[in-house]
Design a protein around this nucleic acid. Structure first.
Length: 267
DNA sequence: AACGTTTACAACCGCCCGGCT
DNA sequence: TAGCCGGGCGGTTGTAAACGT
């Protein structure tokens, strides 16, 4: 089923609202309320689609909207809520009276995310000064051990695939339903420190759901498609210091090797 | 002063969901 | 039960203002 567009494009205005339009919308809603957004613009004498009217009202014209800069307390609240709720802006907005989801989303993307990223980077750098040692205990067996927690942090890679590691380096997730054989994985020598710059583009957006996903790498895994979480456990048998200058080489190596063993179904 | 870049934010778009018929 | 519709949501874009060179 193809959905009809929310409004007829012909003859309807787009772009910034004029004070006159604001006035029309405000006075109409104050008089009649907004029973039906689709019908509203016609009744109010606006050349806008209902969706546009709704957005304008909710995000800008509603009388109880608190305008102006966010207080530091509000910002802290957003950060805390974002940790637990992720990008559920409307849910976050519900906890901040007078603030709209759009406003919160904007302040997050333009301000708070960068601030957290900077803080994260400075933490990474300080940790990087003490390089983690990664040991391989056994060539055939399974678990990476480190003398101290690795600080690299694989995060969202794209909408369908993600790699995540936590401080104890436990897990990797790639998409929804693809498994990857990494038979050559024993040649992987070390897990270098990856700082935030590795993921500099696009901007890192760590959500709780992502950060909570587990990543393990196992040597045998069923191949499935479309993408799914895959788990792969691999092992290291000798102790190494990081031999790559940065994480890019390391992960490029992993990806090029694992790509050879990815089996995709025919469509 | 002119120009390029970055930032902030309003607005749009497409998708999803629930209610109704 | 399928299709339609309205409302809501999150992601993305457009653009003016601010800032840097």
């Amino acid at each position: 089923m193809v959905r009809a567009p929310c409004c007829e494009k012909m003859g309807l205005k787009k772009g910034p609202w004029t004070p006159e339009e604001d006035q029309l919308l405000t006075s109409y809603i104050q008089k009649h309320g907004h029973g039906n957004w689709r019908a509203l613009p016609k009744q109010a004498g606006l050349l806008r689609c209902g969706k546009s009217c709704r957005l304008r009202w909710i995000n800008y014209l509603k009388p109880d909207i608190k305008r102006g800069n966010f207080t530091s307390q509000e910002e802290e609240t957003i950060i805390e809520l974002h940790e637990t709720l992720g990008n559920r802006w409307s849910a976050i907005a519900a906890k901040l009276p007078g603030r709209t989801d759009n406003e919160i989303k904007n302040v997050w993307h333009t301000n708070l995310k960068k601030r957290l990223l900077k803080a994260d980077q400075s933490n990474s750098n300080s940790r990087r000064a003490t390089k983690p040692r990664i040991k391989r205990s056994d060539s055939n067996s399974s678990i990476i051990t480190q003398s101290e927690p690795a600080n690299f942090s694989l995060r969202e890679m794209d909408s369908t695939s993600a790699c995540t590691t936590s401080s104890d380096f436990s897990s990797v997730t790639v998409g929804d339903s693809k498994t990857i054989k990494c038979e050559d994985i024993e040649s992987l020598e070390t897990m270098p420190v990856i700082d935030e710059s590795f993921w500099s583009e696009p901007a890192i957006d760590e959500t709780p759901s992502m950060s909570s996903q587990s990543m393990t790498i196992s040597t045998e895994m069923p191949l499935q498609y479309p993408f799914t979480n895959y788990e792969e456990t691999f092992q290291q048998s000798h102790a190494y210091d990081s031999s790559f200058d940065d994480g890019m080489d390391f992960w490029y190596d992993i990806l090029t090797r694992t790509a050879d063993s990815i089996e995709l179904p025919e469509f």
